[in-house]
Design a protein around this nucleic acid. Structure first.
Lengths: 215, 215
DNA sequence: GTCTATAGGTGGATAGAC
DNA sequence: GTCTATCCACCTATAGAC
């Protein structure tokens, strides 16, 4: 009585298939036919739903990066202190990157391809929002004296973000460095790294005990 | 009397042109004809010197990443203390990455494309050498008591490397985050970030003053 | 909404002259 | 060593049947 596979399902299936392939291979080397067969759909449907390959790419990117940034910002906004904010974003973002391994790859590919201006600045504008929020948090911690004042907040924000993104994109390489093979880094190890990254950043940021904090 | 442009010159010119294009666009989207016209040479020469596109890619990668790793290792070996080693590698590597902006891009692209196994493990094996050296340095600092013992050395090594690579590959994005435009991050700012990254890592690693160091 | 067929263009690679 | 000409495979995109 109902149609077996209505339109909306096809749209999502194409997005899902394209997300995986763009992340693994990049935009250029991924073909329309590959996307179609990965989604188990006719490749021509891509043109019906998205117009062309680039529009599909953009749709994939705003869906995944938008969600990543949204969750990070929500966690910062919910934080009760600068320390909590930093620990919280790192934990939240790591959890998201583990659940969506395509996200860091797509994000970094987009930065690398930026000169080719494919996704244009949509994604970077999204990311800029989270970046600024993180900077403000660090500045707040500096004003209240919990963080040392001689750190450039924007540099510190890069230091924090870089660890999360890089570890996830370097997972196969790190596995080889460990001598465990390309699949040697489990999700558990990755979560542990997340805890490490949070503490690493906080220790680097915290003001020395007794440097003017005595009342 | 001497030939105007002997063979060796052509080989280098192809490597140079390919390095820039592979870094900017990636392996797949870069065409043989583009490389030829960028090098101001006949594209067919590529097959004479390198056999095919993939071999050229491999040659580009081992040349640049090999040099990057070699310099980093030399600096670690020349260090007089674990602290000096870390500050030194970061400074040396940042200087190299600034002088060779293609290096971080090629290296990260290779990690992303690793599943496609194009450069195979040549580059990762090179990088693994530097990674291990860095781990050993951190362990040495822990044994001597200057670094805290509750840090996983391999995690810390990733934290250090990630900052350097990521900042350089995210330069255009960071420029936008700063509100300076894609070319807003100068080499001077990048060098400043290098100093920040070194101090950031050392503060995170150092054992608390007075936690057993009193004689 | 879905699919077939195909147009139109470009890419990697080679043969062979010079 | 260098260059021209060219083959064949494959890719994006569209026209149009169902």
């Amino acid at each position: 009585m109902s149609t077996p596979e209505p339109g909306p399902g096809a749209r999502e299936a194409l997005l899902d298939a394209a997300e995986v392939l763009f992340a693994r291979q990049g935009f250029g080397p991924t073909t329309i036919k590959e996307i179609g067969s990965a989604a188990d759909l006719n490749p021509a449907l891509l043109y019906y739903y998205f117009g062309n390959k680039e529009e599909l790419y953009r749709a994939v990117l705003v869906r995944i990066v938008g969600e990543l940034v949204r969750r990070g910002q929500a966690r910062v906004d919910a934080a009760v202190s600068p320390e909590d904010a930093i620990r919280g974003v790192v934990e939240t973002q790591m959890a998201f990157l583990i659940a969506h391994p395509t996200a860091p790859k797509l994000f970094v590919r987009e930065m690398l391809d930026h000169e080719a201006r494919r996704g244009e600045q949509v994604i970077l504008q999204l990311a800029a929002g989270l970046f600024r929020r993180l900077c403000e948090t660090i500045e707040e911690g500096q004003r209240s004296g919990v963080f040392r004042a001689d750190v450039e907040p924007r540099f510190a924000a890069v230091s924090i973000i870089s660890q999360m993104v890089y570890f996830n994109l370097a997972r196969p390489a790190v596995g080889l460095f460990y001598g465990l093979g390309p699949d040697g880094i489990t999700d558990d190890i990755t979560r542990d790294f997340g805890k490490h990254a949070g503490e690493f950043a906080l220790r680097a940021l915290r003001a020395e005990a007794g440097s003017g904090n005595e009342r």
